[in-house]
């Protein structure tokens, strides 16, 4: 059982959780993720660790409600517990003194990019942030990103916050202005990451993206998260989740992520219609909590 210390919405349907997981907090590095299962009948889903507090023994995750499991998770509160949390999984982000790094976060991808932006800054890089959101209400972690970057550009699809336009518009603009860029990290929806890769490929600026394929165990056992990078099959759970953006086959990733789409939509609709059963199962965790982690 992994107890939730704090749970707070930071945007509509986007919630930040602090979860008791002392072993994971001790080991976690920027870029790594956990896999969690809310209750006995739940599925296992991967979520990037946004932050950790070793002293307190907690990790932070930021969850966007996109399907049944994340919608259920976002209904949990401080004092509730999650049945299983395992990690930290995957390789840590590559952190070096690159020079100037542009960190791009799209939507909830900003939550995944944020810890790596912090680590890049601590390593002495000049960090330029570009965060994008569809609209002002969906913009997350603006303050945190502002505090960790040398300069932060906010982009929105509808112009309700920051500049109107895509994150790639801003990246292209920086390139056109002759800004020296030594590296790019882009995390967000697949079309955004692909668009960033297309822009930075022109100038051969080394670019990383963090991939989010379907996973089960997260330890290299099932191969369900295989992605094609440089023409070769790689397992995102153990070889990634970050890969060279210029080598990733985004189309295969998109197609593989759609494998269970129908089933996922059905499960989410059923849950929205009547969440009682799952909420009860999740709350049973609270009643039987024994506390380890």
């Amino acid at each position: 059982m992994f107890r939730i210390h704090e749970a707070q919405f930071i945007a509509p349907d986007v919630k930040r959780f602090r979860i008791e997981a002392p072993r994971i907090a001790r080991k976690r590095q920027a870029g790594q993720f956990v896999i969690l299962r809310i209750h006995e009948h739940g599925e296992r889903i991967p979520l990037t660790i946004a932050d950790s507090d070793v002293g307190e023994g907690t990790i932070t995750i930021i969850v966007q409600g996109v399907g049944k499991t994340t919608h259920l998770l976002n209904r949990l509160e401080a004092g509730d517990a999650i049945q299983d949390v395992v990690g930290p999984l995957g390789q840590a982000s590559e952190i070096e003194l690159f020079g100037t790094v542009v960190v791009i976060g799209g939507g909830v991808g900003t939550a995944i990019a944020y810890p790596t932006a912090v680590a890049l800054k601590q390593a002495g890089n000049v960090v330029i942030g570009i965060v994008g959101a569809r609209t002002n209400k969906l913009l997350i972690l603006e303050e945190e990103m502002r505090a960790t970057t040398d300069v932060l550009y906010v982009m929105s699809d509808d112009g309700t916050v920051g500049e109107k336009g895509l994150v790639t518009t801003k990246l292209q603009q920086l390139i056109d202005e002759g800004r020296q860029i030594d590296r790019v990290l882009a995390i967000g929806p697949i079309p955004m990451m692909k668009a960033v890769a297309d822009v930075s490929r022109e100038l051969a600026i080394p670019t990383s993206v963090s991939l989010n394929p379907v996973m089960v165990d997260g330890t290299g056992m099932c191969g369900g998260c295989r992605v094609i990078v440089g023409g070769e099959s790689r397992f995102a759970c153990v070889d990634g989740p970050e890969f060279d953006a210029h080598q990733v086959d985004f189309e295969v990733l998109r197609q593989r992520n759609a494998i269970y789409r129908q089933r996922e939509q059905h499960a989410d609709a059923e849950f929205q219609r009547d969440p009682t059963k799952d909420l009860n199962a999740a709350h049973a965790c609270r009643l039987t909590e024994t506390g380890n982690g």
Binding site: R23, I24, D84, V85, V86, G87, P88, L89, T219
Partner: peptide, 11 residues
Amino acid sequence: FQTNVVVGKTV
């Protein structure tokens, strides 16, 4: 028995 511990990662 301790579940959810990936030796090599968690410890």
